[in-house]
Design a protein around this nucleic acid. Structure first.
Length: 542
RNA sequence: GCCCCCUUAGCUCAGUAGGAUAGAGCACAGGAUUCCUAAUCCUGGUGUCAGAGGUUCGAAUCCUCUAGGGGGCACCA
């Protein structure tokens, strides 16, 4: 479907080439199949009444074969109705080359890095991480299908104080198991998983650390803790079907000298200065509220130091866009990272930070108390086991990332028979079932056939919905909003279920059956494509 | 105190780049299956788009202020 091209052509002949021609699917059927407000948008620049401009555009569009009618309505909308043959032809095109139809290259060859989850390896993933994971993965999939070269990266905060605390917390539990006195660190990690780690270490390495001070064996405990936690995080993400291309260790940034090199470079460019024995970054010169300490007066780096180096390193790797998916509680951090980008002489919109709002976990409408400090929280793993990965993801992806989310475990489970994810998956399974039935009846499907036999209103409505997939796709890619896919799939599934209940696909009329199987095949392709963007499985049976 | 996000139907949320009479799902009530899966479908109605100003042909959408909810403001991570 390239309605936009027709309109552009018409405008070009009128001597106008606007940067964007807006198309919308009208809410009311009487407003046609597709509509554009472009005449109104142009009214100001052209200094002409919108309806007059619309008239001119209409003149050019009247001769387009694909259109049945072109009408001007209201203040200057141009409402277009498709000719039936055009609808059918589009269906054929979709079936002939689904990928070409569904995956338009919008990338200009750009490389994008999406960094997401990036949880501290000091505890298991919680539900908030799950939301970030579902979103980041879906966004990456979406961008990939738009032709972008996408790298999915997980940043591992395996340096600094939190890691120390992890090591010491395990150490304290280890001593506890051996009935040796050791004060539990203040701000230490109190979750039960720490006890399990201590138990595991005792089982594998025995009591050789029994009489040692923490300082003497800190590295052993830290390394062990990080490795185990990271392993668990990776397993959880795998179970959630979220994959990464790259895992960047913070510690490695130090070990490989990247932090030092980066800071040297900034020093040379006079972006850093010394004051009160500390080293500061001139963040305030690049849009931040105040300057920020990079190296503390005791000589140790702040978290910000490695973050600067990390983004410096990302830029060096030649990405055209960096997307950071962060928890909303990190929003205060945006200005200083943007300042880093600017200080490195890059446009700050090269970095796009997408904030994912916190998830409130409920059980039967009552909040589940969560305290990381006390070690009481429900993990992503537990929710996945109770609710299921597909449902969990789908719930996350039916909301904009910046909306607060109440995740009620009981509701997610209880409603399982009416859950939106099943609604969409069921449509897919149903179509598979239809194909099985067709094979039984000896009706094979090898490609579009007799599609001109599709004359039912419901059939044409479905094809029109399919025709609008690219429009939805473009918008989702442009705005980096995978949740649009989720909503689209529900609408498509609704149309299909409704059709299914009204018309039989497989019948004695072989040609009509072939035609309807063609339609089903197209719907199946699109649902499959959409679900794969969301990272949700498409089951052939349910 | 300063900054960011959110506020749309009873509930959970969409609302596409400022466009037409603001939409879904859930919940509630009634109905549909001799036939491809009833995890489905069909029929029912609901709005001070938090409030007040402004910008304009046109605002849920952009700007200002106010109220409520969440979050953030370290030589913490």
């Amino acid at each position: 479907m390239d309605v936009r091209a027709y309109i552009r052509e018409a405008l070009k002949e009128m001597g106008v080439e606007p940067p964007f021609v807006e198309l919308e699917v009208p809410k009311h059927e009487k407003h046609g199949d597709i509509s554009t407000p472009v005449a109104m948008t142009l009214a100001r620049t052209l200094r002409r009444p919108p309806r007059e401009i619309a008239q001119d555009i209409k003149k050019h569009l009247d001769s387009v074969d694909a259109f049945d009618s072109v009408e001007i309505a209201g203040p200057g909308f141009i409402n277009i109705r498709f000719r039936k043959q055009f609808i059918i032809d589009t269906l054929k095109a979709l079936l002939k080359d689904p990928e070409g139809f569904l995956r338009k290259d919008l990338s200009s060859g750009q490389k994008i890095q999406v960094e997401f989850v990036s949880a501290n390896p000091t505890g298991p993933l919680h539900l908030g991480h799950g939301r970030g994971a579902a979103f980041g993965a879906a966004l990456s999939n979406l961008l990939e299908r738009a032709g972008y070269q996408v790298e999915r990266e997980f940043y591992i905060n395996d340096a600094g104080r939190q890691v120390d605390l992890l090591g010491e917390s395990i150490f304290a539990r280890y001593k506890e198991l051996l009935n040796t006195e050791y004060p539990f660190p203040e701000d230490g990690y109190r979750g039960d998983y720490i006890k399990e780690l201590a138990r595991e270490l005792l089982d594998t390495e025995g009591d050789k650390y029994k009489d040692k001070d923490y300082a003497d064996c800190a590295d052993s405990f830290k390394t062990f803790g990080i490795q185990r936690m990271l392993k668990q995080i990776k397993e959880d993400l795998e179970a959630f079907s979220v994959v990464f291309d790259r895992w960047q260790s913070e510690k490695a940034l130090y070990d490989e000298g990247l932090v030092k090199r980066c800071l040297d470079e900034l020093k040379q460019k006079d972006k850093l200065y010394e004051k009160d024995g500390a080293l500061w970054f001139r963040a305030s010169e690049y849009g931040d509220d105040k300057d920020r300490v990079v190296i503390k007066s005791d000589g140790s780096p702040t978290y910000f130091a490695s973050d600067i180096a990390y983004h410096w390193y990302k830029l060096q790797r030649g990405f055209d866009e960096l997307i950071n998916v962060w928890g909303a509680d990190h929003h205060g951090y945006i200005p200083r990272i943007k300042a880093v980008i600017r200080a490195m002489d890059q446009p700050d919109d090269k970095l796009r930070v997408i904030l994912v709002q916190m998830v409130n976990l409920l059980r039967d409408g009552k909040p589940v108390q969560m305290s990381k400090r006390a070690g009481e929280f429900i993990t992503l793993k537990e929710v996945m086991e109770e609710v299921g990965a597909d449902t969990t993801k789908f719930i996350f992806l039916t909301r904009r990332p910046d909306s607060h989310l109440d995740f009620d475990i009981e509701v997610a489970k209880r409603e399982s028979s009416e859950n939106p994810v099943y609604y969409v998956q069921y449509a897919y399974a149903r179509i598979n079932s239809i194909f099985r039935k067709a094979r039984e009846r000896g009706i094979s499907f090898e490609g579009p056939a007799f599609v001109d036999r599709l004359t039912q209103e419901e059939e044409l409505s479905i094809v029109k919905k399919l025709m609008f997939y690219p429009l939805m796709f473009e918008g989702a890619v442009r705005e980096r909003e995978p949740h649009r896919v989720t909503f689209y799939l529900q609408e498509l599934a609704r149309l299909f279920h409704s059709y299914y209940n009204r018309h039989r696909v497989v019948s004695d009329d072989k040609e009509l059956s072939q035609a309807r199987l063609s339609l089903c095949s197209a719907v199946m392709r699109v649902i499959n494509e959409g679900l794969s963007i969301l990272g949700v499985t498409a089951p052939e049976r349910m």
